[in-house]
């Protein structure tokens, strides 16, 4: 049985690198990534799982890092926006004007990237379901839809 009490040094696999971090069991992944690894691409927006700005990928699936204990992520592959290296969705977001202030962008990028990886040919309803997990307050969402469709169709 694995257990963790008090502060401990543990290893996280983030963006294909292994990092030592000091955590307490009550630490949530969002704070560990930001405060200890400087991976500030994941943003706090509500810390309640409602906005999706803190979304990261855990073993390829989107997860809101504000509602995951860091200890739950041990042994799993964590991907943050800093780990996306020239993937098509980044280009698509730029070309399709899919962001303005940029604060929600990391979360959206990771959801879109995971969707394209897991469901390369999703029907519209699946695109809607996945992307409804995040809030963008600047754009009309149409631009984000255009960006994700551009990578799904192979246009970008």
């Amino acid at each position: 049985m694995y257990s963790l009490k008090g502060k401990n040094i543990v290893q996280l696999n983030v963006n294909k690198e292994i990092h030592d971090v000091v955590i307490r069991p009550s630490d949530v992944l969002l704070n560990t990534l930001r405060d200890q690894l400087g991976l500030t691409g994941a943003k706090p927006g509500c810390e309640n799982g409602d906005c999706g700005a803190c979304t990261v990928l855990i073993d390829g699936w989107p997860v809101k890092s504000c509602l995951m204990l860091t200890v739950e992520a041990l042994g799993k592959k964590i991907t943050t926006v800093e780990g996306l290296k020239n993937v098509p969705i980044q280009k698509a977001f730029i070309e399709k004007f899919a962001f303005q202030c940029g604060y929600c962008t990391s979360g959206f990028l990771l959801v879109c990237h995971a969707l394209a990886t897991i469901h390369p040919y999703p029907p519209d309803i699946v695109i809607d379901e996945w992307l409804q997990s995040n809030i963008c307050r600047c754009t009309s969402y149409e631009e984000i839809g255009n960006a994700v469709r551009a990578i799904l169709s192979g246009e970008i």
């Binding site: 997860v63 995951m68 959801v111 379901e129």
Partner: peptide, 9 residues
């Protein structure tokens, strides 16, 4: 229930 990302958790 909740949203798609949350459904994964």
């Amino acid at each position: 229930i909740a949203d798609h990302t949350m459904q994964g958790k």
